[in-house]
């Protein structure tokens, strides 16, 4: 082996060690910084449980909204060619690169009391900011592209002939969508859903601007961490963080399991997580 190769091998090993340490250490620190007994005790605090409840509820509703509205749009973009398709997909991806704080202030400017739609909404007796509806909207806005990107790719890579075969066998367009397109794209759709859910669970910036941080109402887990941390209660902040880590890891493992059992002698491995962007919070 040449000397330069040996040096390179050492460098690669070193880089790997640094990366592992850099990622693993903070996660470990959450569990090790304070005694386990403190963590467990803090988990039973009302603030932590409230935050968990709000987080699960709002993120699941946001996920449902994303699936219901995002799937048809993704199908359209993935299977049809039409004028404005490029602009539409750009628009769909915009929240991905938009700082969450911008998303939050934008939502506020649109749906807030004095926002663009503030007057008509108020006339209808609807007030959105600082409610759970606002949390759901913030999460859906920020997490939607994580689902639609995967869904568009999944629908676009379908074997078109199978859709045609379904039609020749007597199934109409709608039936073909549910019986062929959805099962064929299932892997991509579930991966996208898992990503979007994970992103929604970690959402912070848009939520705090548009929905505030009201305990038991709009205070999600990330907001609760910030709230405890800024009031000097490190133990409680760490306990909630530990809870969030557990939920996220569970989600990741669950999604992987789901995809693995769905695949039958499949070809491609699990790519979506490794291929997609980091979950910018």
């Amino acid at each position: 082996m040449r000397r330069v190769d040996r040096l390179a091998a050492v460098a690669v090993g070193l880089a790997t060690a640094v990366v592992i340490g850099f990622v693993a250490l903070p996660i470990l620190a959450i569990f090790l910084r304070v005694p386990a007994s403190t963590l467990l005790a803090e988990l039973h605090s009302k603030a932590a449980l409230d935050a968990l409840r709000v987080s699960l509820k709002t993120s699941l509703i946001a996920l449902a909204v994303i699936l219901v509205f995002g799937t048809p749009v993704a199908y359209l973009l993935g299977t049809k060619r039409f004028r404005g398709a490029g602009a539409l997909s750009l628009l769909l991806e915009l929240p991905l690169v938009l700082p969450p704080a911008v998303a939050g202030i934008g939502l506020f400017a649109a749906f807030g009391r004095f926002g663009l739609l503030g007057r008509p909404l108020r006339a209808l007796g609807i007030e959105i900011p600082f409610t759970q509806a606002a949390v759901v909207m913030a999460l859906a806005f920020v997490a939607m592209p994580f689902y639609t990107r995967q869904a568009v790719a999944a629908f676009a890579s379908m074997d078109e002939r199978l859709l045609g075969v379904s039609r020749t066998l007597g199934a109409g367009r709608t039936e073909t969508f549910f019986r062929v397109a959805v099962p064929m794209a299932a892997q991509g759709l579930s991966a996208g859903a898992a990503l979007a859910w994970a992103r929604a669970l970690g959402e912070f910036g848009a939520t705090i601007l548009f929905a505030g941080s009201l305990q038991g109402k709009t205070q999600t887990l990330p907001l609760a961490i910030y709230n405890r941390f800024s009031s000097g209660d490190l133990g409680a902040a760490l306990a909630i963080a530990a809870m969030l880590v557990a939920v996220s890891v569970g989600l990741l493992a669950g999604a992987r399991l789901l995809v693995r059992t769905r695949r039958t002698g499949g070809s491609a491995g699990w790519v979506p997580f490794s291929r997609s962007n980091s979950l910018i919070g």
Binding site: R161, G164, R167, L169, G170, P183
Partner: peptide
């Protein structure tokens, strides 16, 4: 006539079977 109402059976080269069924 819509293709689902034509009653035309189509058999593609490699079968084009539904892989999930």
């Amino acid at each position: 006539v819509a293709l689902e109402d034509r009653r035309v059976g189509m058999v593609f080269q490699d079968g084009a079977l539904f892989p999930f069924l």
